[in-house]
Design a protein around this nucleic acid. Sequence first.
RNA 1: GCGCAAGUGGCGGAACUGGUAGACGCGCCAGGUUUAGGUCCUGGUGCCUUCGGGCGUGCGGGUUCGAGUCCCGCCUUGCGCACCA
Length: 971
Amino acid sequence: MSETPHRYTAELAGTIEVAWQDRWAERGTFHAPNPAGPWGDPQAVAGYSAGHLLVLDMFPYPSGAGLHVGHPLGYIATDVYARFHRMLGRNVLHCLGYDAFGLPAEQYAVQTGQHPRKTTEENITIMARQLRRLGLGHDDRRAIRTIDPDYYRWTQWIFLQIFNAWYDPDAPREDGGTGRARPIEELVEQYRRGERSLPAEDGRGWEDLSHVERAEILDAHRLVQSLEATVNWCPGLGTVLANEEVTNEGRSDRGNFPVFRRNLRQWVMRITEYADRLADDLDRVNWPEKVKTMQRNWIGRSQGAHVTFPLADAASGPGIEVFTTRPDTLFGATFMVLAPEHPLLEALVPDGGWPAGTREAWTAGAESPRAAVEAYRAAAAAKTDLERQAEGKAKTGVFTGGWATNPVTGARIPVFVADYVLMGYGTGAIMAVPAQDERDWDFATAYELPIVRTVQPPAGHDESTAFTGDGPAVNSTNDELSLDGLGVADAKERMTAWLEEKGLGRGAVTYKLRDWLFARQRYWGEPFPVVFDEDGIAYGVPEDQLPVELPDVPDYSPRVYDPEDAESEPEPPLARDRDWVEVELDLGDGRGRRRFRRDTNVMPQWAGSCWYYLRYLDPANAEALVDPENESYWMGPREQPVAGAPTGTRDPGGVDLYVGGVEHAVLHLLYARFWHKVLHDLGHLSSDEPFRTYFAQGYIQAPAYTDERGQYVEASAVEEEVGEDGQVTFTYAGRPVTREFGKIGKSLKNMVSPDDMYAAYGADTFRLYEMGMGPLEQSKPWDTRAVVGSQRFLQRLWRNVVDEETGALRVLEEAPDAQTARVLHRTIDAVRTDLGELGFNTAIARLTELNNALTKLEAGVPREAAEALVLMVAPLAPHIAEELWMRMGHPDSLAHEPFPVADPALLVDETVTCVVQVRGKVRDRLEVPSDIAEDALRELALASPKVQASLDNGVRTVIVRAPKLVNVVPA
RNA sequence: GCGCAAGUGGCGGAACUGGUAGACGCGCCAGGUUUAGGUCCUGGUGCCUUCGGGCGUGCGGGUUCGAGUCCCGCCUUGCGCACCA
């Protein structure tokens, strides 16, 4: 390579980097002291004048393929931020553990025919080595792993907390709202004292009930329940999945297998109890609006009313209950629609032929309502979600033969069955108001149904369409009630009040959010800390018997099926281990040792990642999942609410900065918030949200190439050529290929490993390149060729301090000249601001300018400037900075050295360039004193010959913005 | 279809509350070091130009002394939601 022996090459960088990584580890440089718990060191904590900061990365899953250059992006960003704040005098907690249970780990193990623990641990070893080589300033004592019994013991403990809790919607909260989780014993106490009436009103008290009866009552209140429910069964994975894990196309998030609806008994977490708080508290956190919107959409809260429509022909009966967000349009409800799965259909359809008033279009050509409805239901049941979607928005349906009564008009209205109404939302039945709803309009026009406008559309509204906007109510009067003239909001209120008064309906809120299906019929996960007795009653395993360890089984593969086999049944691997399943335990309930059956499901991957950040705070604590003092120190609410929060909002506490990809916007971020709130309600946590500030990082994309068949070819073997005409072409093995940019990975054959970067450039160069590419939130293309720019920066920095020939120090023991001092302090000022705002790319640009300016100093670089530059580079490229700092005579690490502070006096230049414009176009530039008076500047500008030359007819106005701009407006 | 972002040199990207468009880097061009290539160093680099200047931030309008930035309409790309009553 180079003849100069002390040149900053990749080899030298590698030597320096590994040496510093060892020193940091030996010295425990990044150990953050805790105020309490097993590592409690209150004195050390008190030594931090500028407070504390908790920085967090999304919990990584150790993949079998190793890291690619996209993975470290966020880790580097949080590391730079953490190191910067450490230099500002804060006690910074930053670490990283491993989310190692779950489907991908298990699939990888099954593929390679090895035990998942073995492959997972090997993968962790590889990943830990790759990450260590990056030089992240992590507190390595806190590198927890979800698969360790010491960790999942607490995952199980949290499960039991949730299992042994119920949601009391009337309990006051300290934030002024009502509704919170409470220990189930408090519910038992209420029943025992008779403060709460028992469901069966047969005069018996709590003590008179059998243990089965009591269990039934309590189980119906628990925040984790075992329910017979419609679940997403995925034969290809051999397990059921949560709604969040099923894509819009009705396939599994992992593996893209078909998912079928089945009724099965499963564990369900009652996240819906928290729907309101999960939606409302988004106002209190500093997150990207986009992610907040995604969570709000997923929760899908809508305000409206439940209204009951009596059946027209039955003397009595329950009627049809609907949910509507537009009770104001009730006068315009001219028909009703039930979902094909609606349970009332059976009773509603009359025997015999079509009733009087049936139109030809309603019958689908069938002989009778029963035949028509049965055919329609069968057709709907046979359709997958994908097929329903493929049919677009064309409305189909048939008349049920049944009639209902519009409760406000008294009109007899037909009841249809149609698949545009979904059983899974609201009540599975709607009142159809074609005039004010596009879907109902489409159906009404297709089936010749009446349309009555009850909101007056504005002039110019297309009369062949529904009107869904605001306007005065019309045609909305009966003997007791008139909405006419009212706006939508007032009309809703009036109508809801009237319905409530008449007992026909009541205001209601519905949610799209469903309860969280929590069990997986797989092997590689946390066992449920639950056992069943011979009556099928579930008991939590006592705390002192945790963890329930995952047994080693000879056959850990899940039973998977033909992905299309909807009729297959889940079969958990743990069920095959009879010795484990059948167990004799003393639950400590005074009934002695009894025989039980263990739960053979395991928890979903989200379980371990729902709370890992809490364990980071106190990983060695054997008494509690986290010492309350540690939790409130690191995560407790702060004085100030987050930026942009509505006035009066209180800070919810939580992690100070969370960085990760937006793909977890709904899944992980929602589940973790839910668990956190439960633990908060039960008094275990002072914070009320897990992630106060969340930053969604962009992705690094890399070029991928396809050949003429559209197949991806190995990107690293593609050659680039610039033709005579300047056109760039790409070839692979001599044949032309087409370039695109996409996610880095095996499937696009465009892997770039950080290991290659360490070898070719060193970790500092790699870090600098990733941080300099552009804004953190943006996705941007990887370009290995461009990495050299970052290396040149570090080589110049090195040369500014160290003589390449001799290795001797080159810094001058004299003060910088005035100009250098100005550049230095302007850089300090800018870099401080940029690093605080995650503006790493602009910080690097400013540091590059300073570095280049110092390079040009013939005599050498003054120590003051060199040291400040090294300290400012330290968060970004820590190894070279430590090395130069040491060579400049400092024996201690610079990790806790104060970050340079700009001298305000040096931020103002003596002279500035003033731009002189004529009609907004630049005509001249003048060097002027920066404190020049407006009048003097005006004179100077008008005197400019270039300005005079472009003024023919004199001057109308002169706008002066001293000292930087003058704009002359000609007459 | 609805909603939200974003469109700036050959490329990644700068530009604070409207005030010098293109910081910094890649690439490219020229020169230097080197036996040569590469590395490295120095300088140049938006486009056009008759060398006066003209034109330039997706397109078309507008507000303003002055617009990448503000307003209106469109186009493109990306993301999210998608019969949610």
